[in-house]
Amino acid sequence: MAFGAFSGETVVIEQPRRRSRAALWLLLPGVVYLAATYLAPLVSLVVTSLKTPDLTNFDIGRYQYAFEIGNYGHVIATYWPIILRSFGYSALATIFALLISYPLAYFIGVTLRTYPLWQALALILVIAPFFMSFLLRTLAWKAIFADEGPVIHFLQSLNILPANAHLNGTPFMVIFGLTYNFIPFMALPIYTSLERLDLRLLEAGSDLYANPGSTFLRVTVPLSLPGVVSGTLLTFIPATGDYVNASPQFLGSTQTAMVGNVISDTYFNLQDYPSAAALSIILMVLILIPVAIYLSVTKTEDLL
């Protein structure tokens, strides 16, 4: 067959390359901003994490410059169960948020596509919680799940919970709170991916003998992966360091403390600045490792 005439014709996609000096100047404010607000505190954090107690002044909160790597070993040895718990809670919250957000985003981005008014309304409902401080909303959950509150009473009347049961302060409540607070961060990026999904590709899938489940797994999911990856990172990273949901003032107790609570405690109450700084850096590094693995597995760096 004579396809020869244009079989050699291949489109080479040329990346436009601009080497303009104006672009570098435009970059300057961003670079200055990052240097001032990110790099400087980071350096200060590293320096603080290596300090030792001031031997000339025994007041609490007095430290001198040093190079005490031992601070890291000390906080890991002391707080490793809490660090582990933080990652566990955060991972579970991320999974639950994904399980709830994906169908939600699919419904808004695909099912409601033919009803633009309903779609806009549903999107507003997802964003609506942001109109109120998340502290207030989290406190509201505390009241709803309080020992004398309606939920516990109802569950007790059905004999699902024993008489002395309580939910506030349990790991369940902390994971619940994290999931609840991060659902919009998970749902919106996924929605953005699914909203652009070309439905003709799903028709092509069904035309090529793929049943709806197979089409979903092989076409819809891969094409919405960039949204899933961004949503997962936007949830997992801040949730691991979160200290509001797990704090005893909100949904947690001392038994549910996460690494954020420990950092806050060591800093404000114990005024042990080197330990707080060392914990912060450990947290940062520990988050970077799974994120790097996750990104290399999903191979979507270029899509982020």
Binding site: R200, E203, G205, D207, T215, V219, L223
Partner: peptide
């Protein structure tokens, strides 16, 4: 029957090739 059960294939106007 559903599309995936039919012994029929389509060349779509938009081609609908899977981009990924």
């Amino acid at each position: 029957t559903k599309p995936h059960q039919r012994p029929v294939n389509t060349v779509f106007q938009s081609y609908a090739l899977f981009p990924h």
